[in-house]
Amino acid sequence: MIGSELILTTSIKSMLEARDHIRENVSQAMQLLHGATEMEKRVTLQRYSMLESFLTSGHGHYFMLSRPTDTVDAVMKHVDAQFWSAVMDQSGIRAFMSAKRQADFNEMIGKAETPPFEMDTIKATFAELYEKRADMMEDGVVDLFRRLSWDYRTNNPVKIGRKIIVYHLLDSWGSVNMRTTDMLDDLVRILSVYDGKPIPEHRNGLYSAISDGPMRVNADVDTDYFHIKVYKKGTGHITFHEKAMLLLDQCNRVIARRYPQSLANMNGRAA
C-alpha cells in the first residue's frame, strides 16, 4: 500500500510539473501568436487578422499540431493572401484593373490561392501589371460598356452620351441593388483615372450615398462627374456634368478602337 502511494505521489508530481511546463509553453505560444496577429494588422492596415481568423473560425481541420511544418505552410498561405491584398490596395494598381480582373484576384485572396508573398514574386507580378496597365484600363472600359451601354441584339457597344438610363438601381422591394451601384462606382473610377484624380474609396460609393440618403425613391445623388435621379420603378436617370464629357470621349475612343465595326452604331441610347 505504501509502495502504491509512493508511485502515485511520484506520478502526480511529474504530471503537475509537466502541466506547468505545458502551460508555460502554451502561454508563450499564445503571446507569440498574438504578437504575430498584431504585426499582421499593423502592416496590412486591416482591423482584423487573417491569421487569427484561420485559427479560430472553423479552419482547424486544415492543420495538426503533430505536423507543425504543414501547419505553418497552411497558415502562411492565408497570411500571404492578406499581404497581397494590402499591397494591391496600397500600390494603387487596382485603379487600372478591370472589375472582372479585380473579382478574380479577390477570389484568389479569399481562397488563399495567391503566390507566396516573396520579393521575387512581388517584383515579377508588379512588373507584369505595370506593363499591362494600359490594356487593363481598356479592359475595364470594355467591361463597363458591356454592362452599361451595350446592344445585345448586335453584340456591339453603344456610345455613351450626356444622358443615359440605368435599370435595376432599386430592386422590387425598393432596396438598392449593389451590382448596379458597383457598376456606377466603376464608371466613377475610370473617369477619375482619366481625370488624373484620386479614386474615391469604395466605402463612400453610390450604394452608401443612395442607401443612407433621406429617401431612396426620388433621391438625387451627385458625383464629381454625373447626377443621378432615382425613380420609383427602380431606374436611375444619369446626366453627365460638362467636365465629364471629354473624359467620356476617351472611353468612347477606346471602344471604337476595340470595336471598329461598331462605329456606325455608336449613337447614344438608354443603357
Rank of each mutant, 00 (worst) to 15 (best):
R146W: 08
L169R: 00
P198Q: 03
Q102T: 02
R203G: 13
K77M: 05
A127M: 05
T121L: 09
V26D: 09
L45V: 12
P116N: 12
D171M: 03
L32R: 14
N252I: 00
M50A: 15
R216G: 01
D182A: 05
F96G: 00
D20N: 03
T121Q: 15
P115K: 01
L263A: 04
V230H: 00
D70R: 05
V188R: 07
Q90M: 14
K159N: 06
A127G: 14
V176E: 02
I2V: 10
L246N: 01
M266Y: 10
V221T: 15
M1K: 13
V43M: 10
T125S: 08
A244G: 00
T44E: 03
R94Y: 05
H202T: 06
L206G: 12
A81G: 09
A219T: 02
H202W: 07
S98T: 07
S208G: 12
L6N: 08
G174R: 15
L187C: 03
Q261R: 02
P200A: 08
L51V: 06
L187S: 00
H78W: 07
P115S: 11
A264S: 15
S66N: 08
G236L: 11
N267D: 03
E107A: 12
F63D: 03
K111E: 13
D139L: 15
K132E: 14
R67Y: 10
Q82M: 11
F240I: 00
V230I: 05
Y194K: 06
T121I: 14
N25L: 06
Q102W: 04
S172P: 03
D186K: 00
E38H: 15
P115A: 05
